[in-house]
Design a protein around this nucleic acid. Sequence first.
DNA 1: CAGCATATACCGATCATCGGCATATACGGC
DNA 2: GCCGTATATGCCGATGATCGGTATATGCTG
Lengths: 118, 118
Amino acid sequence: MLPRMTEAPMREPTFLVLTALAATPQHGYAVIEDVARMTDGRVRLRAGTLYAALDRLRSDGLIEVDREEVVQSRLRRYYRLTGVGEQRLAAETARLHRQATLAESRLRTRRTPGEAFS
Amino acid sequence: MLPRMTEAPMREPTFLVLTALAATPQHGYAVIEDVARMTDGRVRLRAGTLYAALDRLRSDGLIEVDREEVVQSRLRRYYRLTGVGEQRLAAETARLHRQATLAESRLRTRRTPGEAFS
DNA sequence: CAGCATATACCGATCATCGGCATATACGGC
DNA sequence: GCCGTATATGCCGATGATCGGTATATGCTG
């Protein structure tokens, strides 16, 4: 299971999954709930999206299995960020901040006649 | 050409196209260059991506044709943000800031044993 | 005249996400 | 006892934005 070489742009659900695992390891279902809480219910990850994302992030080396527990005869597989995942998430947050700040700046200079924009 | 009702999550190239048009109207090719400059060459929009995005954003009512010019016998079609587009971009920037801040906050509380996270 | 920049536009392929379904167990209400 | 919901993982087909390439022109430069 070699890590993929592509540095494809990260979509929102994937970013939120990494965010959910940033502070502490969590199992899949807990991630779904956490993402819903984080986004005030706006993003409700489908099971298909979540487990596909976990597999992909794992094969990319951004997360790894932390441990497995059985609670009430149900399996809980906990995932945690790897060092690489931590760096990637930090890079993503920096990028988001930069782009958001730039967009805000441009929105402010909007409709200012005869004014050049950077 | 009815505006689509879906409020689908916005991807990075689309966000950057809106950002490019936020301050002043620009034609397609200028948007490609602007996005490349904004992202320090990281994002180089393909023609297919750009014009498809412009069509989609137009049918969604987020942008509209500003004017057309012919320079050196080549057509330049300028697009501008609509009021709806401006609101949407502002909402997107707010969302990006919130998510980036949240992710940073979680990265900071990382690996702090026995500590609950919000 | 070959190559590159400008400028718009179409096309098939890729792939993350969506939406739904399957499989189990536990719990609460009726 | 049964139904619906919550918990928990997983598979599968469809969707759609993006990618990569090509087409079509013109102008400029080497």
